[in-house]
Design a protein around this nucleic acid. Structure first.
Lengths: 344, 344
DNA sequence: GTGAAAGCGCTAACAG
DNA sequence: CTGTTAGCGCTTTCAC
């Protein structure tokens, strides 16, 4: 079954290739009746233009790539990425872009994939997920001329377009809330030291303490790796310092912390309040009747905005690097103890 | 910055375009010294061939699509898909294919995406995830000439290539194990009635009972939707019928069931044994010290095999529809009570 | 408003 | 073993 071509449509519609092309691309200069006639033929025959030919001639593939460097090790143990991917995919659909997925599991894959990603005629632009700082592939990509948006806070601002969650202010909101509720010894479980998201959330924690004139006790700070079990372990250690609250850099760690707290016979939130970060709907809470107070980051929205920004960058490359920040929301539920302190 | 072309490389290397093309595609008929000279130029200049031009000329895009119909609603609440996607991506990388992701959230998106997916010159083949039976998009795709592999059991075998997990035998292994341990009233929590995976796992349950000459009590069967909470609810109902074991069609439901059982003050596995299905590593068990006995499906492997099969289908379309089944493994841990019954 | 013609950058016979 | 010659199917000036 030989595929239909523009030529075929042109012939049966009794017009030239150019005209069919104009109709296909919704260009104005076509007489209404001709346009209809051509559309009719297109519909009847079920013709679809050849993507490669179109890309070659127009120098535009209408395809963008989502690049996940190998340093994003948690990709599939963390519900964050599926959500993000879904937001990105949806925005792609809305804007008629096809989404290419580039997942690297090893340094070798990074080496092999780099030429494919940077090859012209395949991608119009890329979304690059921030991994640990100093990732080799990311560095190379940053130095290429491919239009891109970095997902997260880049090390040196102003050199690349990026979109990030307002981690600092989000974390600060959470900790300030705990302070206002009268908590005095607020512990903090941060993420990996190379994660800018973790660094920024810790910064928010420090900012909140500073604003309240409260001292920083490094004995109340631990670094986990965003997972439940690391939250459990960090909290076990922290309990020796008798905190009356803990702010964790992820919900999973908050759940781990809750498990540690209750297993010591302490009550939440009366004796130790807990506030997390993420609000991923799919996590199963350890204590069904105790909803976690947390900082919600709108991941799906984040993904959609990322695509939108990339489109802007691709459409007007002369505008230079753009930055965008997505706001968070403090969701006050049970574990912060608001109902204990605020009987209003 | 004008992009380099084959022509440029040919000129500076002092050969013709064809020769450069041959070198690029690792074709044999090139003298060794010429080959090296050309490679040198390619390396120095950092030249990468244009993907669209290559696709147009060779009629091969080296890109495959992963299609997730809207009926796959659980896509991002279920750790199954991220794992699957990772396996697929890895196999694509190994075989030099680019992966396109097509996620549909609504019927409208399905309509809009169909032409893009079936458009020639974009995809060499597609992987179509099974959703609920009778999905509109899937029907259309099945009737197209696009090389494809269906992920799951198709309704009418023999009309399409597919790859599936051995759900029936896996479930049967699980239930037979419970029977051998002396359990008499084995309940079952199945999945959605439109899911072939759920249907097959239930079949395995029935087969095991039949083989043992045990009666089927429909009062011991409930349908959940694979989620934790549905497992909890189904188990609450089932407990009224006093089962001494339960086999669930997913780990998440098994965890829900465990929560229901313990909240009734019953002990696992002494009073009620539990066996799940999946063995997804990322789920957080409700009872940290009680590991779930379950049927492991090697999802990552499944994804890789799916790509392999698709490649076979694309390379030899004349061979007709191919079917492949991936075996499961019964992982005996704590919740089935093996240690109680088998003091060997 | 419409058609002719010239590519887009590559692959693949076909000669030599 | 290497170069010449046609395209692949579409977009896009440029005339008319």
């Amino acid at each position: 079954m030989a595929e239909l071509t523009l030529e075929d449509i042109a012939t049966t519609a009794g017009v030239s290739r150019s005209t069919v092309s104009r109709v296909l691309n919704h260009q104005p200069n076509v007489r209404a009746d001709v346009r209809e006639r051509v559309w009719a033929v297109i519909q009847q025959t079920g013709y679809h233009p050849n993507a490669a030919a179109r890309t070659l001639a127009s120098q535009r593939s209408w395809m963008i790539g989502l690049v996940l460097p190998k340093s994003v090790g948690t990709f599939f143990s963390d519900p964050y990425f599926p959500q993000l991917t879904r937001g990105i995919a949806q925005a792609c659909n809305q804007n008629e872009y096809t989404l290419g997925l580039f997942i690297m599991d090893s340094r070798e894959e990074e080496e092999k994939l780099y030429p494919r990603i940077s090859r012209t005629g395949l991608l119009d632009g890329i979304l690059v997920q921030a991994g640990s700082t100093g990732d080799h592939l990311v560095e190379r990509l940053l130095n290429s001329t491919m239009p891109m948006v970095y997902l997260g806070r880049p090390l040196k601002l102003q050199s690349v377009s990026f979109i990030d969650v307002a981690n600092i202010s989000g974390a600060k909101k959470a900790v300030s809330h705990l302070i206002h509720l009268g908590r005095k010894r607020i512990a903090h479980i941060s993420g990996p030291t190379l994660s800018t998201a973790a660094i920024d959330r810790t910064q928010g924690y420090l900012d909140a303490l500073a604003e309240a004139g409260m001292p920083v006790d490094t004995g109340l700070i631990r670094h986990g790796d965003f997972t439940e079990s690391s939250g459990f372990e960090c909290m076990q250690q922290l309990l020796a310092a008798h905190p009356d609250a803990v702010f964790t850099a992820s919900d999973a760690m908050a759940y781990g912390a809750m498990r540690a707290i209750t297993s010591q016979g302490l009550s939440i939130p009366a004796e130790v309040a807990v506030v997390g970060f993420d609000d991923l709907p799919t996590l199963q809470p350890p204590l069904p009747d105790l909803a976690l107070t947390t900082v919600r980051q709108p991941i799906h929205e984040f993904g959609m905005q990322a695509v939108q920004l990339l489109i802007e960058v691709m459409d007007s490359p002369a505008a230079g690097p753009q930055g965008r920040t997505i706001e968070t929301e403090l969701l006050i539920r049970d574990t912060c103890g608001s109902h204990l302190a605020c009987p209003v």
